[in-house]
Simulated assay, not measured.
Amino acid sequence: MTRVADDSKGGLGETVRVVIHALLIAVVIRTFLFQPFNIPSGSMKDTLLVGDYLFVSKFSYGYSRYSLPFSPDLFQGRVFGSVPTRGDVVVFRLPKEPDVDYIKRVIGLPGDKIQVIGGQVHINGVPVARQRVDDFVETEEGRETRTRRFRETLPNGVSYTTLDLYENGFYDNTPVYDVPPGHVFVMGDNRDNSTDSRVLSQVGPIPLDHLIGRAQILFFSLEEGERAWAFWRWPWSIRWSRFGSLVR
């Protein structure tokens, strides 16, 4: 007797296998290659804006427990670890709250001495080049706001813009910070609106083990206050010009 295959059961089984394989691939990519993050605050303006979505490369500095989903305490240190380049924009876990993700720019490397004097960063006693450029302009509810903007260039040539909201802001003049071995010193580009390594009571220097990865590329961006699920507003709420922008 010839048996007839049940195409419906075969089709269902194949669909389940495809879904499982896709999920496994997604888990591997998210764990070892790239993880998506979104920007909820303005501490990195104007490099990163509220509503930006970006991919972070998890292989850039090797892997630690924080590279894995749920951060299981399986091992200490980093596997294939390396120190970030000065100027990298990095995602890390806050030492005092290891379940919280932060994103900032690496300013100081292990052994450096960092100080801010009159709003200008000094690395090992040498002021970082800082040039006034055009204002950063935002429009909210029809009202235009202008913020002073500077181009900062680190000793290794990495250049980016920073915002200066206030003259003589609280952290425009600081003591000298010694960056311990195995740590980096991070700062937000929006200097007067960033809780970063200058705030020793909340952040301080970041252990290399707490790094998740390097911010690489924007893949989506919405105007501040918009919701990603409100797809019917996308034609007007998406910042189309930011798609595919590299994070520098």
Rank of each mutant, 00 (worst) to 15 (best):
D73K: 15
F70V: 02
W236E: 09
T85R: 15
G125C: 05
R242Y: 07
I107F: 13
V126M: 09
L200I: 13
D73L: 05
R3P: 13
R233N: 15
V56R: 06
L200T: 14
T147P: 04
F92G: 00
L49V: 14
R17P: 06
L54Q: 06
E140Y: 12
A230D: 14
H122I: 04
S201W: 09
F231L: 10
D99S: 14
R146E: 04
D73Y: 06
Y102V: 02
W232V: 11
S197G: 03
R227T: 08
R191I: 11
W236T: 14
V184I: 12
R93K: 14
N124P: 03
V79P: 03
S245F: 05
R130Y: 08
L218R: 13
L211R: 08
G244F: 07
T139S: 11
D178S: 12
S60I: 01
W236C: 04
V176C: 08
R3V: 15
V121F: 05
L222G: 00
T195Q: 12
P98Y: 01
L68A: 01
I29M: 11
G10S: 09
G108F: 05
R105S: 00
R3N: 14
D192E: 05
R233Q: 14
M44H: 02
R242A: 12
N156C: 07
D101V: 00
E224F: 08
K58M: 09
A5D: 09
R132V: 15
D88L: 02
V90P: 00
S64V: 06
N124S: 06
V83D: 04
V158T: 11
F170E: 11
P95E: 02
V133F: 10
I217L: 11
I212S: 08
R227P: 01
P175I: 10
R132G: 07
N168L: 07
L154Q: 08
T2R: 15
G119Q: 01
L74I: 09
L109N: 03
D196A: 00
R65W: 00
V184K: 02
I217D: 02
L246K: 12
Y166R: 13
R17L: 15
I103T: 11
D164H: 09
T139N: 13
P205H: 06
L49I: 12
R105K: 03
S67D: 04
M1V: 13
R86K: 12
L208F: 07
E223H: 13
E223Y: 06
W232Y: 12
P84F: 12
S71T: 10
V176L: 10
S159N: 02
L163C: 03
G204Q: 05
T31A: 11
K104H: 03
D88M: 02
R86I: 08
N124C: 06
S43W: 00
S60N: 10
R30P: 01
